[in-house]
Design a protein around this nucleic acid. Sequence first.
DNA 1: TGACAGGGATAAAACGTTATACCAAAATCC
DNA 2: GGATTTTGGTATAACGTTTTATCCCTGTCA
Lengths: 337, 337
Amino acid sequence: MSKKPKLETVAKEAGVSVATASQVMRGAGRISELTRKKVRLAAKKLNYVPDGRAAAMRSGENREIGLSIHKIANPFNAEIISGASDLFESEGYLLSVLDARDDAERQRNQLEAFIRSTRGGVLWVPAEDTPKSTFELLTTHQLPSVTFLRRSEFADLDHIGIENAKATAEATHHLAELGHRRIAFLGGTARVAVRSERIEGYTSALAQLGLGAPIVWDCEDGRVAGMQAMDEIRRQHPDVTALVCNGDMVAIGACLALQRRGEMPGREVSVVGFDDIQDAELAVPPLTTMAVSPYMLGRKLARVMLERIREPDMPITVSHVPARMVLRETTKPPMQR
Amino acid sequence: MSKKPKLETVAKEAGVSVATASQVMRGAGRISELTRKKVRLAAKKLNYVPDGRAAAMRSGENREIGLSIHKIANPFNAEIISGASDLFESEGYLLSVLDARDDAERQRNQLEAFIRSTRGGVLWVPAEDTPKSTFELLTTHQLPSVTFLRRSEFADLDHIGIENAKATAEATHHLAELGHRRIAFLGGTARVAVRSERIEGYTSALAQLGLGAPIVWDCEDGRVAGMQAMDEIRRQHPDVTALVCNGDMVAIGACLALQRRGEMPGREVSVVGFDDIQDAELAVPPLTTMAVSPYMLGRKLARVMLERIREPDMPITVSHVPARMVLRETTKPPMQR
DNA sequence: TGACAGGGATAAAACGTTATACCAAAATCC
DNA sequence: GGATTTTGGTATAACGTTTTATCCCTGTCA
């Protein structure tokens, strides 16, 4: 119908000043109960919704947070987003999400867009090969930023990660206890910290157990890449009887490849995944994996961001959420030959 | 270091007025090449990024679009988002995504948040049971809105859908040609138009073929629900030899259940999926499915939104993208008994 | 009664841009 | 060479809020 109502319209309708109306809307200041009612009534009648950007501009407060992640479609990531969203929502913040598709340049543009559209803070997992300049961009604009999952060497930012090394070490020990002697690491592509941490845990466990040289096999994150990789490994390393994987998708792919060859996960090759996505439990056979709660990670993420916003000079926080082993059916003692 | 630079800072640095600086930044007005250079240099030097909300507020233009969808983690949906994002990005718009998790109330809150934070438009797929009031919210605020995938009876909005009925009819005919006589429809829960359209296509094909009463089986969207449903169907309708599914996830779940029972997709029961998500091709055996290009759908979505923004009084557009059958290995002639 | 306190409301200045109107100087015209 | 146009630039008022300082009024106290 009519034009979009502004505070002035509401004030006029209620017969008060804009200043008063503003105070009522925010529940601030000292205004009598009578006028409060009048204003609220007028606002309702006109279907008034305040203009957030004008408010934000004047007050300096900013209740919009941006998030940029390498892959929205990944269910693990989606759960993190849910967790963060929920907490933000309950605090009156709005989280808006962008998919960087692991492209450092696209991500830089996204971060710039966040700055232009004045987000109050940014949560992000740095794309592979993120240059130092991207981090500088954030610091020169004094934008509260928290990274998660992947930590960069350049980052001088709050961070929430996973106890990666500890987890893969645990997985490796588990496989060794079952009797496996030739254990490989599968998944991921180089240059992100998550992966090097996981490889580190795997490698050091191997060393500690005296189990010979590590075998690290690169592959993209995803079912299909996992399948191809498994086929290759069977061909080139027929002595490998167990796999520690960089993610559940790869692990499931590996299992599928085994089945396609007429073999069985847990028989010819034992497989441990990482993340415990929903599919891990549903796979046939169900996947043994290192579980972390992405939802909780998301909530924690949001909490750290809120603290950082409230206390910009707080020292940098780096924290790690634990992973626990979930035993299912893809890890068994090796076959006797 | 210093405070965040504003246009005034840049102008001072370049020795010109704010007005001039503004014009240079936007590439508008009549300014000599010399001063253009000076201003651009100053801007770069100070790492200046304009405050989008101040600009938007004054100019009335708004280059932020909101999107609310029922499930971000769904790879089909994620592809739609990518498509829309890409087109928006190339036009200088920013798309921010919210996950409604198919909760009408949460979605309403998200839309309200979009209004408060003055998005220039909203793309959304209505959650199940979205009440009329949600649509009214959008119209009273004159917010350019486009729905997609699911069309509501209340909606008086632009819409992009899929040729659902046509696709399931085609799938049903395909199965009938292979020789199947007892064909069931599996997947989805009631009350969204996508599903009723698909059921409609299935049912009318059945009628046309003279194949008896339809069997429609509800289940949640997802692998696990599909598995459970398949087990139930085998038990209660042993005569069913083919399935038209509401989505690939459910279809894959159904296939998994068959395998778990020692049966084979395409042998005991033929299965046709819907969407052609990446996993459909990778599944063992690969899934026959009705393919639609979610990326293209996303681009189209963005294009419609831009048109609507440019031409607010344009008549409502409702368009449908086609689905084409992709033959793989889960549909075969029925076994002889 | 005069001073004072304090509750209730408001005018006006800000926030960082863009749009409008206007001006000075240089260039063009007849 | 004076009038007119063009070019390049600027001062200033918006945009819709919040904040600050200020003001008026009523009641209280000594």
